[in-house]
Amino acid sequence: MANILIVYASLTGNTEEIADLIAAGIKGSDHKVVMKTSEECRADELLNYDGALIGLYTWGDGDLPDEFLDFYEELDEIDLTGYPIALFGSGDTSYDLFCGAVDTAEAKVKERGAVVKEPSLKIEYSPLDEEKNDCRALGTRFVNSMVSAG
């Protein structure tokens, strides 16, 4: 049984809803999932889990959310070589960099050596009904890819 961490930053609840749906996909595969906001989690806690999903919303023109900055900066202090991660987030397509913060976070975890197991899931605002299935499926695929690899 895999033990997965979901770390997320959510201002309006959209990214939290995505995180909840991803967690449901993981739990549906009979694996354990722990959810924490980026404010209540230190980056080094990632290493206490078999893998992690990181979610955040994009602020303005591709900016990281303020409440995610400490976690983001702490990533520079840990070695994620070979560590399985997937990313997700919410954004607004009216901006040039739709979900740009997700791309920034993905670049950081790759720089630290993490293995991104799934393409980043990017959703405008809150997930629509058909996107809710995509969120649950991401959780299921992520944990299944870890179990089959391990």
Rank of each mutant, 00 (worst) to 15 (best):
Y83N: 07
S120D: 03
R112T: 06
L47P: 06
A43K: 00
A43H: 00
V34R: 09
F142A: 00
E16Y: 04
G100H: 12
F68R: 03
L97W: 03
K132P: 05
T12Q: 07
R112N: 06
A52Y: 02
E73H: 06
C41I: 00
E111L: 03
T12Y: 08
D76P: 02
K132C: 13
V7Q: 06
E74C: 07
G89Y: 14
W59Y: 14
Y95E: 08
E130H: 08
I22M: 06
G82R: 15
F71H: 12
T93R: 13
E106K: 10
S94D: 13
I18D: 04
E45D: 12
S120A: 15
L21P: 10
L75H: 10
E74W: 07
D70H: 03
N14T: 13
E131M: 10
L56T: 14
V147S: 07
D134S: 15
N14D: 09
G82K: 07
L80I: 04
G51M: 02
T12C: 10
V109R: 10
S148E: 14
D50G: 10
G91S: 09
E77N: 13
Y125D: 15
C41H: 00
L87D: 05
A23V: 07
E124R: 09
V102Q: 14
L97G: 00
T15Q: 02
L5T: 15
T58Y: 01
F142W: 01
L53I: 11
G139A: 04
L5C: 09
L138Y: 00
V147Q: 05
A86Y: 03
S94Y: 05
D134I: 07
Y95P: 05
G89T: 06
G25C: 10
E111N: 04
K108I: 00
D44T: 13
D129A: 11
I22F: 03
L97Y: 04
V102L: 14
G91R: 14
K117L: 15
T140K: 15
L21K: 11
Y83E: 08
L56H: 06
P84C: 12
G62S: 07
E45H: 11
E16K: 15
C135T: 02
G25P: 08
N133R: 12
